[in-house]
Nucleic acid binder design. Structure first.
Lengths: 165, 165
DNA sequence: TATTGTTATACTCTATAACTATA
DNA sequence: TATAGTTATAGAGTATAACAATA
């Protein structure tokens, strides 16, 4: 009755809407990426992230940051991408333990191949029904949540310590 | 240069924030549900949906609605839940082809077991950093996106027609 | 002929732990 | 001793197509 955690209708509404929207969006995007360039969403994220880096390369660990899952999962995806010639991996000169990941021209080509459809879908599903100020506000609010989550002790994407929880 | 689909920084910001927030939230929630009640997120959604129905039961197809994936996927999850005694399946009297799914007492018990932690996490990760009016606004905006998506010809959760795309 | 649901199957992804090597 | 990354392995989830039964 006085459960402090009992969510208000407004809170539930926001939660459910977030879950359903992100889940539908992700599902549709995954399909598009698969069809257009035979990429999984994670692979696309990795390539896109590399593409956004000025130098076009990083260490594995930095690449994984925020893509949320285990080291072995990253290695697995990197292997697939390397086999397809979309990235290269080479030992880091600075730290001999590290691996530098680079986007290849072929990798950039796949991104180019996939991007138009990706953007079209993004508009069709997500952006079109919203006004510019809605979008700003949405980004603002979710941006704050993101900062909050990033600042929390990592429950999920724990670096390597003893998995709390 | 004049690509009509080129997203503005504000649009990109909203998109990336949505993806990261939902993905971190989902990851954390999945972990909690697994630990607290050995439920996958989908299983939780199915049980919760059944729990919200006044009669406590529906047909498979209606249960799948919005949980976004294939019929066989639903059958798979329903099998797991039935094996654990959390739901029952029985032939529908109205339509002999249909299957009625019901939540059992054990199913309700698992939900009760899992709910407190679920809500706590929801607050900790998602709701706490937001003001009440942010949450209202967020639910409003995402609610509109949701309606928009639902109204679109189903690319992903296509009922059964010839899979477009 | 269309629809409901199941089955068989193959594949992708993820996580855990053990391991190598460098710092 | 801690960190970067890989490997081995095992399990969970998903999709496709073929199928049976009913409408």
């Amino acid at each position: 009755m006085t459960d402090p955690d009992a969510p208000t209708p407004s809170q539930l509404n926001a939660y459910f809407a977030l879950i359903e929207v992100s889940s539908l969006l992700r599902h549709a995007v995954e399909k598009q990426l698969k069809n257009a360039g035979d990429l999984s969403y994670v692979q696309f994220q990795l390539l896109a992230r590399l593409n956004d880096l000025p130098q076009g390369r990083t260490r594995m660990t930095d690449l994984a940051d925020g893509v949320v899952y285990s080291r072995s999962g990253l290695t697995y995806q990197a292997q697939l991408l390397e086999q397809r010639g979309l990235i290269t991996r080479s030992p880091s000169p600075d730290d001999e333990r590290g691996t530098l990941v680079s986007l290849t021209d072929a990798g950039r080509a796949v991104l180019d191949l996939v991007f138009p459809g990706h953007l079209a879908l993004l508009h069709e599903l997500f952006l079109d029904p919203l006004r510019a100020d809605d979008i700003r506000r949405l980004g603002d609010i979710l941006g704050r949540v993101r900062e909050h989550m990033r600042a929390l002790p990592p429950r999920s994407a724990a670096p390597r310590r003893k998995s709390a929880d």
